[in-house]
Design a protein around this nucleic acid. Structure first.
Length: 270
DNA sequence: AAATTCTCCTGAAGGC
DNA sequence: TGCCTTCAGGAGAATT
């Protein structure tokens, strides 16, 4: 379940291998991901050079002179740069080949996506309405506070809304709210600016630390095994329901909000 | 406009 | 041992 730190780690892992490289062939074994993979990927990409690799939210962007590949890893997606002869696994759906190596997309649950646009990629339907990057200067407590005015949705679904801010998935939403001492079900519009200061800082810290942890697995990027960086991170609440709060010792609670597992401390988070 | 529900998919886990 | 059921989970689409 790639969250933003894992997507960023993926970006950093693949960029040195494919930037400036020419695509020789694209093999699509299973075109049915979240949306059908467009023929343009296979038809237009060979011969093109990857001029830049970028990220917007959890979307990865592979720029070429003829257009941009937009990729999303969904729940279970994984990109690896491997020798082309590497044995094909059951869920290896796409290879973008660069001579004797390829960028291979593996995605058991097929919630991921591979799309193509010849327009300005940031104006693509999927990207045009995304909120600011949490690690950019556009993201701040003041921004959150202003956006939250009048909102009655829970703070958890508010910060997980990609139109508000990108890249805060379920795990990091739980962790950020714990760090900020805010109850996940509190109405977004009823939180003070000082509390948003804590929350914004918590989001930045949690994501930054996770990216740093992801970096520790970077050197092993080409290996097939190795857990995602965030599982090595010491998570304070996520996955620790019925265990003791690391601050006060109370038993952490699990509650489903909008179908998502939400773990919190009812004593520390108000 | 905002909030909620539905949907895609498969592997893992639990029940019997 | 094995079959069946249940469920997680990102995020766009549909619905209210």
């Amino acid at each position: 379940m790639p969250e933003l730190p894992e997507v960023e780690t993926t970006l950093r892992g693949i960029t040195p291998h494919i930037q400036g490289q020419q695509v020789t062939e694209v093999v699509i074994r299973h075109p049915q991901l979240r949306w059908p993979i467009p023929d343009a990927i296979r038809d237009l990409l060979p011969g093109e050079v990857i001029t830049e690799v970028a990220r917007r939210g959890k979307y990865l962007l592979l720029h070429t002179a003829r257009g941009t590949v937009i990729m999303h890893l969904g729940m279970s997606g994984r990109l690896r740069y491997v020798a082309s002869e590497t044995a094909i696994g059951k869920h290896d759906h796409v290879d973008i080949q660069f001579g004797d190596h390829c960028l291979r997309l593996t995605d058991p649950r097929r919630f991921g996506a591979v799309l193509f646009t010849d327009q300005a990629p940031l104006e693509h339907k999927l990207l045009a309405h995304l909120g600011p990057e949490p690690l950019s200067s556009d993201f701040s407590a003041a921004y959150l506070f202003k956006k939250a005015a009048g909102r009655r949705s829970t703070i958890k679904s508010f910060i997980m809304d990609s139109k508000i801010v990108v890249g805060v998935g379920n795990i990091y939403a739980c962790e950020s709210l714990f760090r900020a001492g805010i109850h996940p079900e509190r109405a977004a519009g009823k939180i003070s600016l000082p509390r948003y200061e804590k929350l914004a800082q918590a989001i930045v810290e949690v994501l930054s630390e996770a990216i740093q942890q992801g970096g520790t697995t970077l050197k092993d990027f080409q290996k097939a095994d190795g857990k995602p960086g965030y599982f090595q991170q010491s998570l304070m609440v996520y996955g620790r329901d019925d265990e003791a709060c690391l601050h006060c010792g109370s038993t952490l609670k699990l509650k489903r909000l909008q179908g998502r597992a939400t773990v919190f401390c009812s004593r520390c988070q108000r």
